[in-house]
Design a protein around this nucleic acid. Structure first.
Lengths: 183, 183
DNA sequence: ATTTACATGTAAGGGGTTACATGATTGA
DNA sequence: TCAATCATGTAACCCCTTACATGTAAAT
């Protein structure tokens, strides 16, 4: 078992939004969140069986004619509990930005305060990195480009700055929306 | 052999900037580009040996006392040719943004026109995605949030928009810099 | 006194994707 | 008529990271 099993929680989180089949899960990903999250059938189906064994989900088979039967999975109470633990665990455990996005996407079961805490927590980490990059930039700009090598370094440094800037901007506007629209 | 062996070209690209050891390669990554590119020793050292066998690099051993010997790798002409082919191959082969950043970072051997072509090529792909997301957003905004689920979908959609916006911004400012500063 | 830097390398393990298998139905 | 959609599932494979092995010297 790994410390950071995102596939597990991604599936649990989607099933927590509504019961569905493995096929549906893939559908949901394709149409809505594939810009930050993706999983193949080769990850989804075996994991769904494992989650059933672990009693974190239950399955109900819907018979169909001419097509394979649909297997609808629902999250159990035990599953909800484990999911909740993961959702509300902050950044002690190193997380990617994409994982934060996933957590937010599946956060309908959380309170506004919990959602806000998640983002605030992550925001600090990003701001730190952002400031480090800004510092690097101003250090760099004390001298001019000098060489092509340094010029190219500067260009990619800029990409980091713009990237962190966009993340901060998203977090700020999201915090505002979360505070504005009560549940 | 895989179609898209980025580790290979990342190493070749760094060696093309200057001859160095595996340890140096890791150093360079850590201090300069780890925000978009990373490789562990477990990737670097075995690959360096493979590249030597393929005659894409040559090695020179520097004897040291009290420390293990340094092995300095240099790219060969054959290596340069293969690297150049990869560097200038456009987006026919699906590439990540991070791969574009790597290509730009190691592009000192390319002409300004070649560098500009690389970015212009990629820019089109990103703009397409960006416009698709903007369209999704305006479709969404025709109705109001309605449900928490839709609200959360909207929020993550915004993250996509801001992310693509940042990438476009970087490409535009980079194109400007590349045009402004002749080699 | 202990950690960090130097320096190379391997082995095990983990985690995922791609491709394949199967097969009817619907849409272009 | 050909591709795509529906629907589940497995097996092979790929590729990478983590941890370990080894050992000196400098820095704190």
């Amino acid at each position: 078992m790994s410390k950071n099993d995102t596939v597990k929680y991604a599936i649990l989180g989607l099933l927590n939004m509504e019961p569905m089949s493995g096929y549906d899960i893939k559908k949901h990903i394709e149409t809505g969140i594939k810009h930050f999250w993706n999983m193949s059938y080769g990850s989804i189906y075996p994991r769904l069986n494992k989650l059933t064994q672990e009693q974190l989900v239950t399955k109900k088979i819907i018979n169909q004619e001419g097509k394979p039967n649909r297997i609808i999975y629902s999250i159990t109470e035990k599953g909800e509990d484990e999911l909740y633990g993961w959702q509300t665990q902050g950044t002690e455990i190193a997380q990617k930005y994409d994982t934060l996005l996933l957590k937010i996407f599946i956060s309908q079961n959380l309170s506004r305060d919990e959602q806000i805490a998640l983002i605030n927590d992550y925001r600090e980490k990003i701001e730190e990195k952002f400031l480090f990059f800004k510092k690097s930039e101003s250090d760099f700009l004390k001298k001019s480009y000098e060489s092509e090598k340094r010029f190219l370094y500067y260009i990619t440094l800029r990409s980091g700055i713009l990237n962190y800037e966009a993340k901060l901007k998203w977090m700020d506007e999201t915090l505002e929306l979360l505070e504005k629209y009560d549940k």
